[in-house]
């Protein structure tokens, strides 16, 4: 009697291209900003910061107008739902689970704060500064720089936690979430509402908004 290999489990579309692109470009931008900041390459640091600003602006827009799994209204949940997820009673849906959603919100907020403070930061010699620092005093710019450095430390911990969580899902729960964020789909054997994509027009509008806003920031809103 020969065994017929079981068919591979059906693949479920989860993350659209913009969401995946933003995720991995954020990783790249974060690493670049870290390295350029540490090695005093502040001209490059500003550029990678601007790139991150553009990515974040787009992600926030996509969180309101993008595909269903990218929308905050679809995955951000309150504490009760987080508890129900931890208890195993959460009704599954594609995309971020309530706990993952929490980490997404935390990371996005931290990144926005990090970039926000960076835009106003002034270095100790008053020689290097963010594009919006001209609107604040030297002392305020110095304080922004200190917050920029402090929030980075917090971000590092959160990123480490994030990576640990992904590793936990991979090795303990046997779910390859990183692969899903690359391929955009995962194996799933069950009934869940399908993912609704967003139109190409929406995507283009988002890119334009992000680009315009970032450009305005580099000009310090002084046209």
């Amino acid at each position: 009697m020969s065994e017929v290999p079981a068919p591979p489990p059906p693949r479920l579309r989860v993350w659209d291209v913009p969401t995946r692109l933003v995720h991995w470009l954020l990783v790249l931008g974060f690493a670049l900003s870290w390295w350029t900041g540490e090695t005093g390459r502040l001209e490059w640091h500003r550029w990678s910061g601007y790139a991150l600003l553009g990515l974040l602006t787009f992600r926030i827009y996509w969180g309101f107008f993008g595909s269903s799994t990218a929308r905050f209204s679809r995955f951000v949940r309150g504490p009760k739902t987080v508890v129900s997820y931890l208890r195993g009673t959460w009704a599954q849906q594609p995309g971020h689970n309530p706990l993952g959603a929490l980490s997404v919100v935390v990371m996005l907020v931290l990144l926005v704060a990090q970039i926000g403070f960076g835009l106003f930061a002034v270095d100790v010699d008053g020689l290097e500064s963010g594009p919006l620092s001209l609107y604040v005093s030297f002392d305020a710019g110095r304080m922004a720089a200190e917050w920029h450095e402090g929030i980075f430390e917090v971000l590092l911990w959160v990123v480490a936690l994030h990576v640990l969580a992904i590793a936990y899902y991979l090795f303990v729960k046997r779910q390859n979430l990183a692969a899903a964020m690359v391929r955009g789909s995962r194996e799933f054997d069950g009934e869940v509402p399908p993912v609704e994509g967003a139109s190409r027009l929406r995507f283009i509008i988002g890119v334009i908004i992000a680009a315009l806003f970032t450009w305005a920031v580099t000009k310090a809103f002084d046209f």
């Binding site: 100790v124 010699d125 008053g126 500064s129 620092s133 001209l134 005093s137 030297f138 710019g141 110095r142």
Partner: peptide
């Protein structure tokens, strides 16, 4: 030196 930093920022701004 903080005063000097302030002056440099003023030159930049």
């Amino acid at each position: 030196y903080e005063e000097l930093g302030e002056a440099f920022k003023a030159v930049r701004d």
